[in-house]
Design a binder for these strands. Sequence first.
DNA 1: TTCCGACAGTGGGGTCGCAAT
DNA 2: ATTGCGACCCCACTATCGGAA
Length: 333
Amino acid sequence: MRVSTNLRTTYEAMLATLGDRDDVIGQGDPDEWAFEMKWDGIRTMARVEEQDGRTAVGLTSRNHKDQGPGYPEIVDGLGRAVSGKAVLDGEIVALDTRGRPSFARLQQRMNLADPREIGRAVKRVPAQLFLFDVLEQDGEPLVDLPYTERRERLQALVTENDAVKVPPAFEGDFDGAWESSKDLGLEGVIAKRRSSRYAVGRRTRTWIKVKHVRTQEAVIGGWRPGRGRRAGTVGSLLLGVSDGDSRMRYIGRVGTGFSERDLDDLHDRLERITRKTSPFADIPRADARDAHWVTPRLVGEVEFAEWTNDGRLRQPRWRGRREDKDPSQVRRE
DNA sequence: TTCCGACAGTGGGGTCGCAAT
DNA sequence: ATTGCGACCCCACTATCGGAA
């Protein structure tokens, strides 16, 4: 039986810089890069140790919370997958019915405290640990080795099982990896410089994440006032799309992507088209609480990661007004 | 000089646990 | 019983600043 201990992790995860295709292929030799899929889950530093003759496993999230107790199947799997001591970097994921990592499913595993509750959740939504780096092996620090050598060490070190995987890294062309990630319905691609060291706790351009982006036109049906620095202007916009009906279908809020000029401009325009009632057919009470309603006349464009199960924008950001669009023509794409 | 990376501070969706109503 | 709120997870973005390139 493996135990999950509250082992303190001494490493902060290395982070990738957000970029686009040109940031990767636009400079230098394309062979300098390796490509991995971007997994949508919980970034986790894993430590395997020997303690009193037993294998002890620690899992730590990015803000230093002990994740071991919440994922007993991974603790057990990691104990079987690795012999000896190691510090490994990876992502806890929960796969959907089509085999894609689903953050929505994984959320059902978060914040559970009661062991019986966790036991039931393991059966309902099993989680896996996808490993993509090794920082230390049997006490030997590996962070200064180049990526390619750490990859070799990782693959030799880990014996995969149900709960622990080492997903492949692709050499060669970005476009191939990009298309694969798209076909598989994944978030995007992480490009890693093959010669690069593991920069503990830092965000550098030796790792570049390139994400699939969606765009959607939306009608502003209201807004919420800002707080702190944004007091006196717009906090977020309440967005909708036409359903062919007189009232709009609510698709969520957007509160980032504005410059200070954008905020002033929007605030000005919105104040002039104020009305008393909600233009949405279906907005939840919580979202409507401190809303200021407006006549649905202004159209804008947002970028976002994906639609949530509830038909809301996930990770939305404002891209600007679309004066060329008629509100009644704005549909969900 | 320019640019990179770190920080702080704003905002989002979703889940769970717990206190207030 | 319902509602509200914070803690965790994921995150985008703006604005600023110091120091590296």
